[in-house]
Design a binder for these strands. Structure first.
Lengths: 201, 201
DNA sequence: TAATACTCTAGAGTAATACTCTAGTCGCAG
DNA sequence: CTGCGACTAGAGTATTACTCTAGAGTATTA
C-alpha cells in the first residue's frame, strides 16, 4: 500500500513532466493521486514545497547512480569512462526524473532546500574524491580542484543531455559516450599514464 | 524616446530577474514600464509571449558575443581560449541576461520560438565552423562534430556559470578561465601534429 | 469502555492574477 | 471633417494557489 504522500510525489513528477511547473495545477496532481485538497496542504504546505521535496529525492537517486560508478577502486581512464556512462545512462533511463532535475526545477523554489542540496553535493564530491585522490597522487590524473574535474566529466555530457531532455535534439546522448570519454580522458588523464602498463580500459 | 514595447521588454527582464518567472506578475511588469493592461496584451498576447520574445533577443546578443570571438582567423589554441573567455565574460558582464537565458527561461514556453532558436543556433554553428574547419583540415584541431566540439568548449565553463548564476557559488567563474582553457586545449587540440605532412581523407 | 490527543482527510470559501472585452484616444490620409 | 488603423485604458471574468473549519481514524491512558 502506498501512502498519500508517496502518491502525491509520484503524481507531481508525472504532471510536472507533462505540463511543466507552470502548467501543472495542484488540482491535477491531487486528482491523479486521488487525494483531497486538505490532504495536499496538510502534507505539503505549498506547490513549491512538494517540488522541493521531489527535487531532493530525485537528486539523491541521481547521486547514488554516479557514486556507484566509482564506489570500487579502478584506474583513471576506466573511472572517467564509468562516470560519464553513469551520467548518460541515468539521464536516458530515468528520463522523467532527469527532466525534472535539469529542466523543470529552478533555483528560485529550491531555496528552502538549498542546505540539503549542498550537503548532498558534498557527499557526492567526497565519494568522487575517494576514488580520484589516489590517482592524482600516483600521477595518473592531472591535478585540479574537484569542481574543475567534475566540470570536465559532466559538463560536455550535460550539453547533449539537456538538448535531448528539452526535445531540441532527438538523438540518444549515449551515442556520444565514446567520443565524450575520449575527450575527457585527454582533458584530465596524465599523458604518461596512457603508456604505463597496469590498468586496462 | 523609448517605445512601450521596449519598456515592457526591459521591465520584463528586470522583474523576471528579481522574482523569477513564477513570481513575476504582469502587474509588476506593467507598473515598471508604465504601460496599461490593454497595452501589454495588445503588444504581447501573453506573459509567455513576452518571455519568448525576450529569450530570442537575449540569445542573439549572447551569440553575437561568441561569434565575435572567432570572427577573425586565429590559431587553434588562441581560438579555443577566445571562445571560452567570450562565454565567461558575457555571462559575468551580462549577469541579468545570462540568468534569464540559462536559469529562468524554460523549454516549455520557448516552444513557439523553437524554430527561430534553431536558426540562430545554426548561424552560431556556422560561424564557429568557418574558423574551425581550416584548423581541422590542417590537423591542428582533432576531428569531431561541431556539436561535440561545442560541448567541450562550453560544457565545463557552463557548470561554473550556472553555479554562479544560481547563487550556489559566489566565486567569479572567470577565475577558472585558465584551467578551463588548458583542459579544453588538451581535449580538442591535436598534440604537436602541426608539422606532419597532411594525408587527407 | 470512555475520554483525549493527534494525524490525516474533506471540501467549501477567499484572494490573487492571467487574460478578455468594450470603449475609447491619437495621428493621419482622403 | 470623416473614416481608419494602431495603440491605450481599465473594469470585468475565470482560474487557481492557498485557507479555514469540521470531522474521521487511531493509538494512549484512566
Amino acid at each position: 500500500m502506498t501512502t498519500a504522500r508517496e502518491d502525491l510525489l509520484a503524481a507531481g513528477l508525472a504532471v510536472f513532466d507533462r505540463d511543466g511547473f507552470e502548467g501543472a495545477t495542484i488540482a491535477a496532481i491531487r486528482t491523479r493521486a486521488r487525494a483531497s485538497n486538505g490532504s495536499f496542504f496538510h502534507l505539503f504546505g505549498s506547490k513549491k514545497e512538494l517540488a522541493g521535496t521531489l527535487f531532493l529525492e530525485i537528486l539523491a537517486r541521481y547521486h547514488a547512480a554516479v557514486i556507484a560508478a566509482v564506489s570500487e577502486p579502478c584506474g583513471a581512464r576506466e573511472g572517467v569512462a564509468r562516470l560519464i556512462r553513469a551520467h548518460l545512462d541515468w539521464v536516458v533511463t530515468s528520463r522523467r526524473e532527469a527532466r525534472y532535475l535539469f529542466e523543470i526545477s529552478r533555483s528560485e523554489w529550491t531555496e528552502k532546500v538549498r542546505g540539503a542540496q549542498r550537503a548532498q553535493n558534498s557527499r557526492l564530491a567526497e565519494a568522487v574524491q575517494r576514488w580520484r585522490a589516489p590517482l592524482v597522487e600516483r600521477g595518473e590524473l592531472l591535478p585540479m580542484t574537484p569542481a574543475v574535474f567534475f566540470s570536465q566529466i559532466i559538463g560536455p555530457a550535460q550539453i547533449f543531455c539537456r538538448a535531448w531532455l528539452s526535445g531540441r535534439d532527438r538523438a540518444d546522448p549515449r551515442e556520444q559516450a565514446d567520443i565524450l570519454i575520449a575527450c575527457a580522458i585527454r582533458a584530465v588523464v596524465a599523458p604518461e599514464a596512457v603508456h604505463k602498463p597496469g590498468e586496462t580500459v
